[in-house]
Amino acid sequence: MEAKKTNKKREPGFLRMETNLFDRIFIGVVIFVAIHLLWMRFLESSISLTVASIISLVLIFVIAKWG
């Protein structure tokens, strides 16, 4: 019955726990928001926020793919 699920459970990636795609995207978005908030507070005076967006988008992709 497990196999019927489309959000297939698979071997844990570098997050070291069982996750489906939804879980990993969720984690990615949480990190995305956290990076932006911290960036605005501490780094934005010197580095533009766009850099944060790029970094976090890459992170979301990495987590969704290999997490």
Partner: peptide, 10 residues
């Protein structure tokens, strides 16, 4: 945009 949030973290 994110102005509200920018204000909020400070």
């Amino acid at each position: 945009g994110v102005d509200n949030y920018r204000e909020l973290v400070f």
